[in-house]
Each structure stands twice: as C-alpha cells, then as structure tokens.
Design a protein around this nucleic acid. Structure first.
Length: 314
DNA sequence: GACCAGGTAGCAA
DNA sequence: TTGCTACATGGT
C-alpha cells in the first residue's frame, strides 16, 4: 500500500476522526479494533485505524500526535482530502455562524468535527436504512449489506469489501435483504437500486442541481422522503444548507427555537436553516445533532450556563 | 412488555 | 393538501 501523512497543522481547524466518522454521517467506515459505533461514546485507542473502500481503493487513516496518517492502494491523500472535506476552514465557520448557547456548546463539545463527503449511492442506501433505527444499528445493517453484496479485495492479508453496486442490489430479492436484517426497508433498497441500475436515475446528479431541486429529485427514490433526501444532499452532494429534521433536531427546535416549530417539514426546515446560519446550516446541524445524541443529558438541560429560549425568535 | 430509534409509503378524507 | 397507520428489529 501507499503511505503518507498530512500535518494536522496544515488543516484549518484540525480533524477529529472519531467524531467525523462516527457521528452518523457516513456508515461505511470501520475501526481496526472492531468497535466503531459501539455506542459508548469513546475515542478509539491510540493507533487505531479507520478504513473504507472508495473508488475501488482501500483507504486507511488514523491520527498520530500531529499528523493524519494514511495507507491506501490508491492516492490516499487525495481520497482523504476529498471525502473528509479536509479543505473546509473550520475556524472561519465558527466565526461566522450565529452565536447561540446551543450552537456554541455543540462546537465546544466536538471541535474538529468535519462534514463528510460520501459517494451518493451508498449515502442514499444507508439513509434509506436509517429510518426508525439507531446509529449503531444502521452501521450494522450497512455492514451486512457490504459483507453480503460488496466485492471483497484482499490487501496485506486483510479483506476489504467495496460498497455493493446498484446492479447487484437490484438483483437481490426482498427476502434475502430481510434475512440480513433490513426489515421493512428491504424492498426500498431493492427498488431504489433498480431505479439507479435500470431506470437511469442517479443520486450523484443531485450534486449538479440547486439545493431545492436536488432535494426534490432525491425524494424520487423509494424509501427516501424529505429527511433522507436532506441527509444525502448534505453528506454526499455538497448542499451544506440542507438541515435534516430528525427526532433529535426536532426536539432541539421544540425546546430551544420554538418560533421555528411549525408542523410542516418544509417550513420548519427553512426556519431552522436561518437560525443555523443559512448557507452552512447543515454544518451547524451536524454539530448540534452529535452533541445532543452523544452527551449524557436531556435536550432541554441547561447548556453552559444558559437556558432554552423563552421568547420565540431568540 | 412498553417505548424508542437520524421516517416513509399508502391510503382516507 | 393534510392526517393517520403499519412497518422490522434490537436495546433499555
């Protein structure tokens, strides 16, 4: 494998691999200690690798004292820079997003958390699987898909599986997909794969569209509603203004931003996007989601000496 | 056992 | 349009 390092000091805002890769944005990274997404909110042990397969190439990354170290069958540095969004300027983001108690607490909780840039098809399949499911179990389902339908490749004695191709998943039967634990999502995954493999739809096309059109397009896939579409838009298609409204963010809105708490997804999403800073609102959403989901404590607990908004519009 | 988890599709009004 | 409801499954 090729090897190299990227100085953390060369990355504006550094890079926290643990929060970036295990915060529920991407589900196709695994840890060499086998404990990714185990749910106990702990950094991996020092020296632990994260690995995945991108563009058919194995990529392994880990943090050392002052560098990001990588190993890859391909151009590991290019793959890491692209998919870990290493050129995003985090301090600039922190500077210009709204100064708000919940946002500030969320950023202080996980500085160095970066958005991911996942390949669109795998992101779409993962988030179709995500409905009514905890983060650790989404990872379990995606792992089962990858190990059952992905192409294995042995490198240095280790086997790595690529993410399954649309053509492969399109040919899977519903009962096969149910057998590996997908439950009622089984036909959604198969039918979405068929739309890609046989009908010419392509989630990557959403990258070239303006955000509203991209979200609309992504809901054409089976099992993808507005929330799943927002996740794919944000985590795979570079639409950083997308704010997925899941149960955690909805709770946060009800508690902290009651003025945004309208019934319809569309209105609520637009309102919270403004509160979270507009063009980069999805970045803020990811920090807030990670903070609320993994810290110990209820959503409405005081944050850093502050209390939830009492006046609509604060 | 009830309740919950990064919701959606299908159907009725 | 909006408002139900069924849907798999494992953890707490």
């Amino acid at each position: 494998m090729n090897r190299g390092t990227i100085p953390l000091s060369s990355l504006s805002g550094g890079c926290d691999l643990y929060t970036t890769l295990e915060s529920g944005q991407s589900y196709t990274w695994w840890r060499s200690d086998g404990n990714a997404y185990a749910g106990w909110n702990e950094n991996p042990p020092y020296g632990c690798w994260y690995y995945t397969v991108l563009d058919g190439e194995v990529l392994r990354v880990r943090e050392r004292e002052d560098v990001l170290e990588w190993e890859s069958t391909g151009d590991g540095e290019a793959l890491a820079r692209k998919h870990l969004r290493l050129t995003d300027d985090l301090p600039a983001l922190y500077d210009h997003i709204p100064d708000d108690p919940l946002i500030r607490a969320s950023i202080d909780y996980a500085p160095g958390l970066r958005l991911i840039r996942d390949p669109p098809f795998r992101s779409l399949i993962a988030f179709i699987c995500s409905t009514q499911m905890r983060v650790s179990r989404i990872h379990d389902m995606v792992t089962a898909l990858v190990e059952t339908y992905g192409k294995p490749r042995e490198v240095d004695g280790e086997v790595y599986h690529s993410f399954p191709r649309p053509e492969t998943l399109a040919k899977a039967t519903e009962s096969e997909l149910r057998d590996i634990g997908l439950g009622y999502r089984a036909p959604y995954v198969r039918d979405t794969a068929r739309l890609v493999a046989e009908e010419g739809l392509d989630p990557a096309a959403a990258r070239e569209m303006a955000y509203p059109a991209a979200r609309e397009y992504l809901t054409e896939f089976v099992g993808a509603g507005q929330k799943v579409a927002d996740c794919v838009a944000l985590f795979a298609c570079d639409h950083l203004e997308a704010v997925p409204l899941d149960t955690w963010i909805k709770q946060a809105i009800a508690t902290w931003y009651p003025a945004c708490d309208s019934e319809g997804y569309e209105d609520c999403s637009r309102a919270i996007r403004d509160v979270f800073g507009g063009d980069d609102a999805g970045y803020v959403q990811t920090y807030v989601f990670h903070y609320l989901r993994t810290r110990n404590g209820p959503v409405d607990a005081p944050v850093a000496g502050h209390t939830p908004a009492e006046t609509p519009g604060d």
